[in-house]
């Protein structure tokens, strides 16, 4: 019997077989088959990639997507850190309230949240009616289908992925450390910059990577809140595949997106800590 607690090799293999079959049949093989279309037309060619990297529009979309993901990551960090700090610090009833405020949106389907943002931001939406009734604006503002709307809604959707890892690394800081720093005469600001912030960096890194990776490939929110004018990589891919029926080109953009996403995940795998994803729960 092996030291791992003893399933025979063949039993273990047999038990893992259905999962392996599922992953190969419904994930690995479809991905390989789809992405490899980008290399043929009908003979082997790199022209789809050449076209992607030679066309200004597509490079702009690529750049815009990366920029959007960076901005969303920065804003989620800025807004998420204080909330993570509160979640880690508070005890009792207030801790429950803050946790509920973070988790309930997380558990609200992304689709429903995007719908709610449309209601809030549209021309005769909640925000415009409120602003008008307060006398702040006379003309309804154009809010929906703008870059700002996309950032606002994406930040909202991705915020929990930033808050939860930061919160768990803040929670891991022994209480004695900031207390000792205070005792040695450090100001609150100094305690934060020299003790708390550096010790929470693993959580910050994990959160930033997670948010950035998800933001790069985000589809629903940009498609609904960004409207037809906002092109992100993901909307460009579906447009090429289903509207222009150019599957090879859609596959080449998908390959670039996948390489970018998996590349970041592999390079930073130690920081990313995929297990944290179960913090969904």
């Amino acid at each position: 019997m092996s030291m791992r607690g003893g399933l025979s090799r063949s039993t273990a293999a047999l038990m893992a077989l259905p999962l392996a079959a599922l992953m190969i049949a419904a994930f690995v093989w479809p991905l390989v088959a789809f992405l490899s279309v980008s290399l043929f037309d009908p003979g082997f060619t790199l022209e789809h990639y050449a076209r992607l990297f030679a066309t200004e529009l597509y490079l702009e979309v690529l750049g815009e997507t990366i920029l959007t993901a960076l901005i969303v990551t920065a804003v989620t960090l800025l807004l998420g850190y204080p909330i993570a700090w509160m979640m880690a610090k508070l005890r009792g009833r207030w801790a429950w309230i803050v946790a509920a405020c973070v988790l309930i949106p997380l558990w609200t389907p992304v689709l429903v949240r995007s719908y709610a943002w449309i209601i809030i931001l549209q021309r005769r939406g909640v925000l415009n009616t409120t602003l008008a009734s307060l006398g702040i604006v006379d003309q309804p503002l154009t809010l929906l289908y703008t870059f700002g709307a996309v950032v606002l809604a994406m930040t909202h959707v991705l915020m929990p992925f930033m808050i939860l890892p930061i919160q768990s690394s803040l929670r891991a800081i022994p209480e004695e450390l900031p207390r000792a720093a205070r005792g040695l005469g450090a100001s609150h600001l100094r305690v934060f910059t020299s003790v708390i912030l550096p010790l929470s960096l693993p959580g910050v890194m994990a959160g930033c990577l997670m948010v950035f990776i998800i933001a790069l490939g985000f589809y629903i929110t940009p498609a609904l809140v960004g409207g037809p004018r906002t092109l992100m990589i993901s909307t460009l891919i579906t447009q090429q595949a289903f509207e222009l029926l150019n599957w090879p080109f859609a596959a080449s953009i998908s390959t670039v997106l996948l390489v970018l996403t998996l590349g970041i995940a592999i390079v930073f795998r130690r920081l990313l800590n995929v297990d944290r994803l179960s913090l969904h729960a």
Binding site: A26, F27, W29, P30, L31, A33, F34, L35, V37, I213, I214, L216, G217, F218, Y219, S234, I237, T238, A241, W247, A250, A251, S254, L257, L258, T261, L262, A265, V274, L277
Partner: peptide
């Protein structure tokens, strides 16, 4: 978990 769902969706549709 980290593969963009759009890519998964297209690959599965294609298959």
């Amino acid at each position: 978990l980290i593969t963009p769902h759009v890519v998964v969706a297209l690959a599965l549709y294609f298959q």
